[in-house]
Design a protein around this nucleic acid. Sequence first.
DNA 1: TATTGTTATACTCTATAACTATA
DNA 2: TATAGTTATAGAGTATAACAATA
Lengths: 153, 153
Amino acid sequence: MSREDRYADTRRLSQLLVGIAERAKADFAAVVEPLGLPVHLARAVLLLDTPAPMRELADRLCCDRSYITSLADQLEERDLIVRVPGEDRRVKLLSLTPDGIALRDRIADTVTERSMVQVRLTGAQRKALLPLLEVLAGDPDDEQPTERRSAQC
Amino acid sequence: MSREDRYADTRRLSQLLVGIAERAKADFAAVVEPLGLPVHLARAVLLLDTPAPMRELADRLCCDRSYITSLADQLEERDLIVRVPGEDRRVKLLSLTPDGIALRDRIADTVTERSMVQVRLTGAQRKALLPLLEVLAGDPDDEQPTERRSAQC
DNA sequence: TATTGTTATACTCTATAACTATA
DNA sequence: TATAGTTATAGAGTATAACAATA
């Protein structure tokens, strides 16, 4: 197989991958919007499986601490979280309220139910896909050490 | 297999998919940034394989016509495109200059060479992945007719 | 001194609305 | 009347810098 042919395959696969991910993002937004929740708030809610310091959320969402402050304000206004003081008194933990937990569960269930992975693929196909995606995602611990990428941002 | 187990599989696959796509986007940005080209300009350049009306570019990039005007201005400033009048005198075609063509080829080659699909997967793995992604992406023409989604925006 | 969260502010990307010229 | 592109303007999302409290 020529270099050009391999390249064409790679391009096709890359396009599919990006298209699928964009579609997944749009589907997520479509689930979450009728609940009156902007996408970035919904993502934060899903991450708060367990109460987490704001700093940690910033790391996981790959954004600035100051932005987390504004997310937290918005989530608090909607009574989805409360700020609870951490042991280290500089730290505040974001903790889901009962309303927040209910909403998180609802979002997680709905997103999963409607996921293309769930809807379009058979069990066998899911099973075949998993190892391929794992190779593609790469073992996060065996990257070529490019000195950047200490955190995934 | 229980519903919960299927859900767990689906979530894992979805996370991998999204993670891979985000990584691909970051890699694209990393290729393009040293060339002094913002990501959205680079995407436009790649789409201009053949001269295209601004309206068509708006459709393909899923954005407003006014935004294309500003992209075109920036590309013209960098001597990567020219606006050429269309047959219908309302229309302007965006056409790559020789510099633009050279840059487009360079971007396309570099992105492909460094693509995770190219680097991490064997030929056999790429071959196995293709049909799965095609199912997942879905035949664009056999969606459940949700009346929206006439164009993919 | 370094770190957590906050505030005020500014920037980037993108859309909306009103406009011109053509059809 | 409807469409292509343009202009001016506004909004959403996010970052930067300076700051207070705590370590």
